[in-house]
């Protein structure tokens, strides 16, 4: 069976007819070609597919497109202002918070969620709030630094 959905993705209205069982991440990657949202596991643990649904971080691999009907979706592609990086993205660059880049979109989307809920997080806050995001390259030290720096920059604006 198929289901008709409409939603806003990165500020643009999107309507589609998809099979009922279609996962949101599949729709974003394959249908909308927003391939910045990555798939790193099949047990809903790695967080590479983290996006925002109605302003809250969720794993796009663990949500049906049908469940997102009527929602506002934000993906990594919508974070920067063209080629001008968002302060959180810039903080990741300045603090070497990424290496291979695969977990990075999920990290940035989680980072923005962390700061939304806690504008001045401590290092321990950040480490605990990254429970749902795996990185194999950085050892997290610079990711944590990036998020702390990004939070400061966002607060300063």
């Amino acid at each position: 069976m198929s289901v008709s959905v409409s939603m806003t993705v990165n500020g643009k209205a999107v309507a589609a007819e998809v099979a009922d069982e279609t996962l949101l991440v599949t729709f974003l990657r394959d249908d909308l070609r927003l391939t910045g949202t990555h798939v790193g596991c099949d047990t809903s643990q790695c967080g590479a597919c983290t996006i925002h649904v109605n302003g809250s971080a969720v794993k796009a691999c663990t949500m049906l497109v049908a469940q997102a009907d009527g929602c506002e979706i934000d993906t990594i592609e919508g974070v920067s202002d063209g080629e001008t990086l968002h302060p959180m993205q810039q903080a990741f660059k300045d603090n070497h918070g990424l290496q291979c880049g695969f977990c990075t979109p999920g990290m940035v989307m989680s980072a923005l969620d962390i700061v939304k809920n806690n504008p001045s997080p401590s290092e321990q806050d950040v480490r605990e709030a990254l429970e749902g995001n795996l990185c194999r390259c950085t050892g997290y030290t610079n990711i944590v630094r990036s998020i702390l720096a990004g939070a400061k920059d966002m607060e300063a604006r």
């Binding site: 927003l34 391939t35 910045g36 949202t37 993906t75 990594i76 592609e77 974070v79 920067s80 080629e83 990086l85 993205q89 990741f92 660059k93 300045d94 070497h96 990424l98 880049g101 990075t104 979109p105 940035v108």
Partner: peptide, 12 residues
């Protein structure tokens, strides 16, 4: 700072 970061950070 890294040349490659801009594309990775923007999901590109």
């Amino acid at each position: 700072t890294r040349v490659e970061d801009s594309r990775f950070l923007r999901g590109l």
